[in-house]
Design a protein around this nucleic acid. Structure first.
Length: 689
RNA sequence: GGGCCCGUAGCUCAGCGGUUAGAGCAGGGGACUCAUAAUCCCUUGGUCGGGUGUUCGAAUCACCCCGGGCCUACCA
């Protein structure tokens, strides 16, 4: 009988950014699971890679004046460094920009073609000649072809609820540049997922490949209606792989990214002499993906279709975790809670984060909250106060004598803890690390009580108690070692140090079943340090310094803002939203921007993003404007202040009423929105030139 | 507005149809002094978000409401 193989992946980090504490939830969750499997002696391989393609990488490389290859090589090196520092141990770490991935993309593509799932359609699309790009439906507006309502989006009319193609619009206008779009034909390649519906329904809904919540969500959100074709091509220029047989067309980054899992495996096989087919084309292999809930869609619909069509193993299980919040809120650059892995390492021990995350992780999609006070308290009390303390308070007493030759009577303590192994293992297996940690800590409590009751510190005072002292310490250190075996997936360094202390390396899970006796005990060295609150504070402070923007809650004036060195401004904002095409002065002058005062502001009750503003342009001129800034500003913050308003924008009917202009602001959206305002002296009604 | 998830002690969470609802930390009292002010014992603290049902029995199931998160739409 052939042993089962387990292949594990974490989602591929994008080569456009550094690893931060949010990423680490996933890589630590996965690494712990893999280490657990390996500790059990199972055949388990963990692969990952950098996700390197796409427009963002291309733009950024251009801005930095170097090749994409140079950019992604640097970023990959940084990622590998960060992962290694956190003891995240991949069997192989590749890149989607690799020969292996290109080759596998072609194999997948071939499979999709043969399955009849690919269609090439010459789509006529609106093209913005000024911005130099094709326009998605929502970036075009015009007059509804049915009911002739003005200012309707390219896909459907809000007035008569009819749907149509953007090319059907009368008098279309690009919402990006205001230019009149041209109709251009472009070749697009699509994957028809609707054809695979019976397979998808069966795969997502029947076997236990997914958490029930996820299966339910997919059913309600996508499978309840016809699945739309997935557009998997992008026209040049694009950083990626050109599609064979389709010159000028490149695979969309989300097409080649998951194939990176397979490519990384293939590279690992080449390196180790393994047979590739054993790992991706074998019913003896279980593939486990670990991902965040944001990319569920890709991994549970598109990816299974691709694998099925190309004849590769389908995932045995997709493990999905929630997001990280810090102190109950989304990570925030301005609050210093957006902490890079490298920044954490400057201040704190990676083992602390490994344990803390483990103590919070469950197999649910719930978000994980990192409460910074709790972080320090939990690590200090559990690891330092309970676990490490056991060795710290007894090892010194047996430095000279070593462990007793025969394991003494301990009243059943060791046997009790040994019996807990299966329950703890089941918790690890189910990704319920929270439960595993609680079980281990309960054992640690019993062990400390044992030491307390036997008072070794008194035994050492009397020569005739020497044997009993050695016996008590032998028990305590064995209980300690047992805990460390159970914690080894989470704390590999502690396991190694413990192996050195007791002269017996910890290599297997079942080492918790047999006590050590008669071994030498080395000089005790501090196994782990307490977390000082100051260190956590310092980490937050230096993360705050990395922040490129001021807090949105307290808009600062230019005068009071600290002078930021220009060199500290990163390229991310520009990369996220590339420069638009050149326009003439006349085109600019069409926009009538005015200074306006917010004279009233109120929340729009049924809307999550909108505030209703009344703007004064001076005199009696008033404008009613809906602005999508609710998450960044309260009405109270706005009333009385000056803003910049687009005064000649065509009025637009919205769900809640007519909007007669817009206020201008910077930022990516959500809570990161920064309204523009003039320097002191400007008055409402003045035009911006 | 539509969809999904969550709401249990001060904090972070377990329990998810059946005895007086639990843990860790924090708080209070005591013990000990080997240990990184660690450990051990005792202890305060909850109408399990609210309401209505189903049931012999509900934190646990159903429905409604309130609050939080995410996806989606409206962000001109």
């Amino acid at each position: 009988m052939t042993e089962r193989r387990i292949l594990v992946t974490s989602a591929l980090p994008y080569a456009n950014g550094h690893i931060h504490l949010g990423h680490l939830v996933e890589y630590l969750q996965t690494d712990i699971w893999v280490r657990f499997q390996k500790l059990l002696g199972r055949r388990c391989v963990y692969v990952c890679a950098d996700d390197t393609h796409g427009t963002a990488i291309m733009i950024r490389a251009r801005q930095e004046g170097r090749t994409e290859e140079a950019l992604i090589a640097d970023m990959q090196a940084a990622h590998i460094r960060d992962f290694a520092a956190f003891d995240i141990e991949f069997d192989h770490y590749g890149s989607t920009h690799s020969p292996a991935n290109r080759e596998l993309c072609a194999i997948f593509w071939d499979g999709l073609l043969k399955a009849g799932l690919v269609s090439e359609r010459e789509v006529t699309q609106l093209y913005d000649p000024v911005a130099g790009t094709f326009l998605a439906d929502r970036f075009v507006k015009g007059t509804c072809p049915r009911c002739k309502s003005k200012d309707q989006y390219g896909d459907s009319c809000e007035k008569c609820h009819s749907t149509y193609a953007p090319t059907d619009l009368i008098d279309p206008v690009s919402t990006i540049s205001g230019a009149t779009p041209e109709v251009r034909a472009a070749n697009h390649l699509f994957i028809n997922t609707e054809q695979m519906r019976p397979f998808l329904v069966e795969w997502t809904q029947t076997a236990d490949h997914l958490y029930p919540d996820v299966a339910k969500w997919l059913d309600a959100a996508f499978l309840s209606e016809p699945l739309r074709d997935w557009d998997v091509s992008r026209p040049a220029p694009y950083f990626g792989f050109e599609i064979p047989g389709a010159p000028g067309q490149y695979w969309y980054v989300w097409f080649d990214a998951p194939i990176g899992y397979v490519a990384a495996t293939k590279e690992w096989c080449a390196r180790t002499g393994e047979e590739f087919a054993d790992w991706w084309r074998s019913d003896k292999t279980d593939v486990h993906h670990f991902i965040g809930k944001d990319i569920t869609y890709f991994h549970t619909l598109f990816w299974p279709v691709m694998l099925k069509a190309a004849g590769f193993n389908l995932p045995r299980m997709v493990h999905i975790h929630g997001f990280l919040t810090v102190n109950g809120e989304k990570m925030s650059k301005s609050k210093g809670t957006f902490v890079r892995a490298a920044t954490y390492l400057e201040h704190l021990d990676p083992a602390c984060l490994r344990y803390y995350y483990a103590s919070k992780l469950t197999p649910k999609l719930d978000d994980l909250d990192m409460n910074l006070e709790e972080f320090a308290a939990k690590v200090n009390s559990d690891l330092v106060g309970k676990v490490v303390n056991l060795a710290s308070r007894t090892a010194r007493f047996v430095e000279g004598t070593g462990l007793a030759a025969k394991y003494p009577d301990d009243g059943g303590l060791f046997a009790h803890a040994a019996a807990a192994a299966s329950e703890i293992a089941a918790a690890y297996e189910a990704c319920d690390y929270n439960r595993a940690m609680r079980l281990v800590m309960a054992l640690a409590d019993r062990a400390n009580k044992y030491v307390e009751d036997r008072e070794p510190w008194n035994l050492r005072k009397k020569a005739e108690s020497a044997a009993e002292l050695q016996a008590v310490c032998t028990v305590a250190l064995n209980l300690f070692r047992q805990l460390v075996v159970y914690l080894a997936p989470v704390l590999p360094r502690l396991a190694r140090q413990t192996g050195e202390l007791l002269n017996r390396p910890i290599r297997r899970w079942d080492e918790a079943q047999t006590p050590l006796a008669g071994t030498k005990v080395n000089r005790f060295e501090r196994l782990m340090d307490r977390i000082e609150a100051d260190r956590v504070k310092a980490m937050i402070e230096s993360s705050r310094e990395d922040a490129p923007t001021a807090p949105s809650q307290q808009p600062t004036t230019a005068a009071s803002a600290p002078a930021a060195p220009a060199a500290a401004d990163g390229p991310d904002a520009l990369a996220a939203e590339p420069l638009a095409g050149t326009i003439s002065f006349d085109e600019f002058a069409k926009a009538d921007l005015r200074v306006a005062r917010v004279v009233a502001a109120e929340e729009v009750p049924k809307s999550k993003k909108l505030l209703r503003l009344t703007l004064s342009l001076g005199g009696d001129e008033r404008r009613n404007v809906f602005a999508g800034i609710k998450e960044a500003y309260t009405p109270e913050q706005l009333v009385g202040r000056l803003v910049i308003c687009v005064a000649n924008l065509a009025p637009r009917k919205m769900t809640f009423g007519m909007s007669e202009g817009m206020v201008v602001a910077a930022g990516p959206g959500g809570s990161e929105i920064y309204l523009l305002s003039p320097d002191p002296g400007a008055v409402p009604g003045q035009r911006i030139h």
